[in-house]
Amino acid sequence: MQPIDRQEFAAGVRWWQTKTKWPNDFHNGAYGVLAAQNPDGEFLDNWWPDFLRRLTRWGALRPLSGVDVTGLLVANRDGLASAWQQACAPVKDMDITGVTWEQVRAFPEVVARLKPTKSGSPVFPSKFCHFLLPRIFPVFDNAAVGGSNTYEAYFNLIKNTWVATHADLQAELVAELARLVEDDGQSRLYDGFPMATKITELALIGRRHA
């Protein structure tokens, strides 16, 4: 597996900052909000509207409507809760380096039922899962990264790329991303910020958009 290099990471940061309208804090502020709203397996009606609005803003629903996805959420609510308890609750305080796809796959597989696609696109399940456990589930965006036709493939690409990167460089990039987040001036770095998944995502963006 090809490890991260500094040039890829820097190129990914530049692309994020100049080619998108995504926040310069790399969603740091959003992660604190999402953690406070995390239903911890209780996917009830009062939690869903704000979560649905975020999924919509992140372009996760197209071409379905919010009504369509809401209906599928209701139909699969018990399955979501069961999969969360089985796959996510035991590892929710860990990050992607400490889990395998086999351990957590039950949850994204149920999530995928809320927006079924012929291609098995990873976009919707990755964003849904990332909002709940960002340190475990990496987010996938076709324009940014592309290239993965299943969420399992993308999850393992993120995990194995990070693991293949030397620990000294990992530490340097963690410090650099923390500086970039706090230089934005909006907030201090959130304690649960998903460093491994975010740094690797940026490096893969840089690898594609060098």
Rank of each mutant, 00 (worst) to 15 (best):
Q170G: 07
Q85C: 13
A87K: 07
L132G: 00
A81V: 08
Q170K: 13
A81C: 09
W16L: 03
A89L: 12
K21D: 14
E42D: 12
V110A: 03
T70V: 10
L189N: 08
D191C: 09
T56I: 09
A75C: 03
W15N: 06
W84G: 00
H209N: 13
P116W: 11
A203F: 01
A143P: 00
V104T: 10
W16N: 02
D141C: 12
I158H: 08
W47H: 14
V67K: 15
Q2M: 11
D184A: 14
E8R: 15
A178Y: 02
P23L: 03
Q85W: 12
I136D: 03
W15C: 05
D141H: 13
G146S: 15
L114N: 01
G41K: 08
G41S: 10
G192E: 04
I158E: 00
R57N: 13
R77E: 00
W58L: 14
G32S: 06
A196F: 05
P49F: 11
W47F: 14
T97C: 13
S148V: 10
D95E: 06
P125I: 12
L64I: 05
R6F: 13
A89F: 10
M1W: 15
L114W: 01
P90W: 05
D141P: 00
W84R: 04
L177D: 03
T97W: 01
Q7F: 10
A153V: 10
F140H: 11
Y31R: 07
T20I: 08
T18G: 10
A60Y: 00
L177V: 02
V33C: 08
Q86C: 07
L204R: 08
G71H: 07
N46L: 12
L189Y: 08
I205F: 04
A35S: 09
K118T: 13
W58I: 02
L114D: 01
L73K: 09
W48A: 04
I205V: 15
A171R: 15
W101G: 00
Q103D: 09
T70R: 14
E201G: 00
R113E: 05
K92F: 09
R14D: 13
F131N: 05
A144R: 04
W22H: 12
A171F: 07
A75G: 04
L55Q: 02
P134C: 08
G66D: 10
R208F: 11
D183I: 05
A36N: 09
V181S: 01
D141Q: 11
K127M: 09
T197H: 12
E182N: 07
Q170W: 04
A203P: 03
D191I: 11
T161K: 13
F193Q: 02
A106G: 14
V69K: 03
V163K: 15
P122N: 10
N24Y: 05
V13P: 01
G185Q: 01
P125M: 09
L52I: 07
H27N: 10
